[in-house]
Simulated scan of single mutants.
Amino acid sequence: MIATLNKSKTALTINRQEFKLALEKISAGIDKQIASLKKAKQGYDAKEMAQETINELNIFEAIIEGFNEAEGTNLKLADITNLEKAQEWIDDFLEKYSKD
């Protein structure tokens, strides 16, 4: 599970391993797009593609929404206990595409 809900159902903790696996799947999709663009000899900005993908996914909002629906909770972004750390994981992910 990508996050763990605490016993009182008032906070979530993003699970590092599962979150990193999800980012790896996102990365594979971006890499596939880049390969197609290269093959077609079209220009691309890898950093921009990665940033747009992350922005469109709204990862944290999707996690919160999923738990709210499944658990009948009313959690908000502020209820993610390790949000800053998870944001660092996303920043590390985006850094990979800044080097192209």
Rank of each mutant, 00 (worst) to 15 (best):
K76A: 13
R16Q: 11
N58W: 12
E71G: 00
A35V: 02
L5M: 06
S8Y: 13
A22R: 11
I26F: 06
F19S: 03
K76S: 13
I59C: 02
T13W: 14
Y44H: 08
A28L: 14
G43F: 13
T10F: 11
Q42W: 05
D79T: 02
L21V: 02
K47G: 04
K20S: 10
A3L: 12
L77Y: 06
A70W: 09
L21M: 12
T4I: 13
N58F: 15
K39T: 08
D79H: 09
E24D: 05
I14Q: 06
Q17T: 08
M49G: 03
Q17L: 08
L37E: 06
E52P: 00
K7R: 15
T13V: 15
L37A: 03
Q42M: 13
T13F: 15
A46P: 02
T4D: 12
D31Q: 04
E69P: 00
E24H: 07
I63T: 10
E71V: 01
L75D: 03
Q33A: 06
L75G: 00
E56M: 15
K25N: 04
A40E: 01
A3W: 15
N55C: 11
Q51M: 08
G72Y: 04
E69L: 14
N58M: 15
K25L: 07
A35W: 02
E65I: 13
E48I: 14
N74M: 09
L5K: 05
I59V: 06
E56P: 00
I2G: 00
G29V: 05
N55G: 06
L57M: 14
A3Q: 05
I54K: 09
N15A: 07
G72C: 11
F60Q: 02
I64C: 06
Q51Y: 11
T4N: 13
D79M: 10
L23I: 05
A46R: 05
A28R: 06
K7W: 07
L77E: 08
T53W: 09
A11W: 08
Y44F: 15
E65R: 14
K7D: 10
G72L: 15
K7V: 12
I34F: 04
K41T: 12
K38R: 02
L12Q: 03
K9M: 04
I80F: 11
A35C: 00
E69K: 13
R16D: 09
A78K: 12
S27I: 06
E56G: 10
A70M: 15
A70Q: 14
A70H: 11
